[in-house]
Nucleic acid binder design. Structure first.
Lengths: 340, 340
DNA sequence: CTGTTAGCGCATTCAC
DNA sequence: GTGAATGCGCTAACAG
């Protein structure tokens, strides 16, 4: 391993017989340089394999072309798809992406943020920030020094930009769709510890109450709702509940739970959608890989990511904070049908 | 948005009434400082919200605490899980992770690499490098300047470290397992354009030939094998092939294809595993979410990532290049059973 | 123990 | 058009 130092601008200058300033000019193309010298410099660059040192450049321009992204984890395809959206958009602006996993740990989340700040990123996107367990001043202070965008954040903090879905409206739409198919006994399946579930539950309660058919036994919380174990734990739980509650449809707060519900129905000998309808939320890729393909509400993960990236670059350029709310759209597939 | 400049080491020094060197010492804790002054400095740091500028530090220590990761895309959970492994390991060494997607485009892949080099990363991990379409000298030159690790790379380049699975052995194991269940007509399903598939096919051919039951019609290539559309395209294809070839088992080169095979069987009214066995490869999370749960070969994605990270830090510290080959392990679940 | 100083690699005035 | 000089924020000798 030849530890031959990488060539610097000085080396190039020497080889080309010019000053470093000139080299800088041809590299950045921001000032006129005589064609002949430019060519001399360029061949020097090539033979030396010279690559400008971005750190040094950014140190003295006090700008930075990398942004930070903090995500709860990659195990969940939801986040992976969001990141995909961020990456693609951000690349078009010539920015690079520093990725950190917070592992659902608030302390870790703060560590990640600090690491990003010290790396001098020009902005940060946080997916599902744990605003409940981090004292508000942390993010409030942070946003004074650096542009901040939250994806799926529910506590409003001044000056941070938000991208999210209108899940209240989305749940209502889902419920109305099921009712349109004639369903009245709709089981509501949620997980623990996320504002997202709370919002959906509220929407469900409100809607069912309006129609005078709210029953507490139709609401079930299956605990941790975001891991791979979610599928199995949902199934186990519903194996008991379905026979008791006898719903004609099941509305799940995310697709993992819906797949669990599907598996439970299968074991109970219930045909989907003939005997019972199952509906998910998110539209992760999994939902169209299984049989029957899942009817679900699309959370536009990719869009979430690309919008967040756009908002961030806007703030970096000095724009003000903004809030973008996307509409969930109903994806009708094969797991739902008319009540029989 | 208060564009109050972030505090620098000079500001802290002034406020604490000491020299910048002293501040540097308490920040890095590498030289003794009198308790009293240390405390003065620390309070200054806190009131100023001082965060050291890593770029500046690394510029003059000529070290870098970020590494680069190039991945074909995030849409495939395989890669997401590998990255998860990298991230976790790398964090323990205090390194940050710069993520780039090559989108299966060789040109893009080279761009990503160059961007990483100019950002002065201390090493690069490439997942499934496109060594076929990138001229060999590119990586050969690169590794002269910067430590390099390939995950699932098949062309050997001197001085780069490799992490991969023994897929040749793994396929053989899978085949033997199926044969142990009494299967003789085993359909082989592969995708296009990946050395990984070629290795498995070779293993299949060899094995079947040994037992004198190699039949060309039992080998099928379903084209693109890594996207979400893979499931459906595999299903469509097998819907035609299964009735003709009448296999008692199907061996698929990855889990997406296996799920497609499962769906095809369902449509054909074949019960799995009673009527026909289906086997996948990879053990992505999807494989244990569907019904029946898939029997598959575990590619240890997380381990792939963490081992690659370990190899990289080793090289960064001056170690030599290495090759790690993990063994695929058979995960027996519900999609396979004895031939009837 | 602590302060002074010299760069790290580069972009940018300001002269020429 | 081009070169010399300055400084970005920080660490690492080197003196005290």
């Amino acid at each position: 391993m030849e530890d031959r130092k990488n060539a610097t601008i000085v080396d190039v200058a020497k080889m080309a017989g010019v000053s470093v300033a000139t080299v800088s000019r041809v590299v950045n193309g921001n000032y006129p340089v005589k064609v002949e010298t430019r060519e001399r410099v360029q061949t020097a660059i090539e033979t030396l394999h010279y690559v400008p040192n971005v750190q040094a450049r950014e140190l003295n321009t006090r700008r930075s072309s990398t942004i930070g992204v903090v995500v709860p984890g990659l195990y969940n395809m939801f986040f992976a798809e969001v990141i995909d959206g961020i990456e693609e958009t951000v690349r078009k602006d010539g920015l690079s992406l520093l990725l950190n996993c917070a592992k659902n740990d608030p302390q870790q989340e703060m560590n990640c943020i600090n690491a990003l700040v010290s790396r001098n990123v020009s902005g940060i996107i946080v997916i599902s920030p744990n605003t409940a367990d981090i004292k508000e001043s942390f993010y409030a202070d942070l946003v004074k020094r650096i542009p901040l965008v939250f994806i799926n954040g529910y506590h409003r903090i001044p000056n941070v930009s938000y991208v999210g879905n209108d899940e209240k409206l989305g749940s209502r739409q889902a419920l109305e769709y099921l009712e349109g198919l004639g369903h009245q006994r709709i089981l509501f399946v949620r997980g623990a510890n996320s504002d997202s579930y709370a919002i959906k539950e509220e929407s469900y309660r409100q809607h069912m109450a309006e129609n005078k058919r709210l029953e507490e036994q139709l609401i079930v919380n299956i605990g941790e709702g975001n891991g791979v174990e979610t599928v199995d734990s949902t199934m186990a739980r519903l194996l008991e509940i379905i026979p008791q509650a006898k719903p004609t449809a099941i509305f799940c707060c995310n697709d993992l739970m819906a797949v669990g519900a599907l598996n439970a129905c299968k074991r109970l000998g219930l045909k989907v959608p003939e005997d019972i309808s199952v509906m998910g939320y998110d539209n992760i890729s999994l939902s169209r890989l299984i049989e029957p393909k899942l009817t679900t509400m699309d959370q536009n993960m990719f869009q979430l990511g690309s919008n967040a990236a756009a908002l961030l670059t806007e703030k970096i350029k000095g724009g003000k904070s903004k809030r973008i709310t996307l509409d969930n759209v109903l994806i009708t597939r094969d797991s739902t049908g008319p009540v029989r």
